[in-house]
Amino acid sequence: MMIILDNEHVLVNESDHAAVREVLDSLDLSGTGSAVAEYEDDLAFWFGVDHAIACSSGTAALHLALLALDVAVADEVIIPATAPVMTAMPVLAVGATPVFVDVATSTSFALDHGDLATKITPQTRAIIAVPMWGYPADGPDLVDVCKGWGIPIIEDAAQAHGTMVAEHYVGTRATVGCFSTHNRKLLSTGEGGFCLTADPAIAQRLRELRNVGKRPGEGFGAVFGLNYKLPSLSAALGRSQLARLGTRVADRRATLRSVTEHVAGMAGLEPFPIRSDGLPNGYSTLFRSSTGTARPIAERLGAAGVASDPLRYGYKALYQVPALARHAPATRCANAERLIETVVTIPCHEGVGPQHLGRIAAALRG
């Protein structure tokens, strides 16, 4: 059946049109236009950080972060086995080896510190944390542990705009926080991304890297770099949408609560646990099957026109993906595999209304 309800819900209003038209009329359209700098200033202010660096995608943001931290061939990067493929590909792009770590439990995306400790080696150059579907995952304890080891954290917050842990926005506690502004995200520029950091030296490196190695007062190629700039038109749209992000997150959270209350208990679905000091952003509503694999439930939802991301995108442990299979750990990540097997997502965007909740309920009843 044709999908009638998925997680993609782009909201564009007249303010967005006006912002894009203003830049279009200025003819200052490149990634070095003033609209980009203004967008970055607004991002830094909204998230409460010192530096925001806009770029062409969330994957580019991760690639830039790894390059800025000098991750290279023969280095290792820790990644949770529950992360999406997009998290791992930049690690391969810099020639490093992804090392997959289990999650703490089958109901958490937080890294298992015991498994993590066994996989740290002298070659470990970075640890990537990933709060999937905007659900708060790793807490301040991971930051403390990594400081003790002297290993930087990259937070892949591609889906987590506005998610909070311990009264801080996800993506602001790491050495570098990386975000996507793809069409599906709460802050959307169609394609795009940005990095957040408190470190001025890393911020400068990120800016040089995304602009073909150009330094102030020097030409391109002063250092290594790539063309990962965000166009001014996209920046103008992002800046306009950012002004409504707080409201959008609040609306999403309200819909998440509504979907959770409506669905909990149906077909053996239980709400996915939310850590006590965390607050999801409403990117999607997570449930877990208490009776076994969630695939039949997701298939029933799909047949009713309601998309569930794990089924739609073939969600699996990263080391089960063909391009990454040669990096599989000696011992499988049992918690991660169980989480992936039992998790279901249901959309909770602003377009989800009573008629959709009725369709979801009917599908779950069978």
Rank of each mutant, 00 (worst) to 15 (best):
S34G: 12
A37D: 13
E38N: 15
E38V: 04
Y39Q: 12
Y39M: 15
E40H: 05
E40P: 09
D41V: 05
A44R: 06
A44H: 13
A44G: 11
D50H: 11
A52C: 15
A52L: 13
I53Y: 10
I53A: 07
S56Y: 08
T59F: 05
A65F: 07
A65R: 03
L66Y: 02
L69P: 09
D70R: 06
A72H: 14
V73R: 12
A74P: 06
D75T: 04
V77F: 05
V77G: 03
I78H: 03
I79F: 01
P80K: 03
A81Y: 00
A81N: 07
P84S: 11
P84R: 03
V85P: 08
P90E: 10
G95N: 11
P98Y: 04
V99N: 07
D102F: 02
D102I: 05
V103T: 12
V103C: 15
S106C: 11
S108I: 04
L111S: 02
H113Q: 12
L116G: 06
A117Q: 09
T118L: 07
P122C: 04
T124Q: 11
R125W: 01
I128W: 01
V130F: 03
P131E: 01
M132S: 13
W133Y: 15
G134Q: 00
Y135F: 14
P136G: 03
A137R: 01
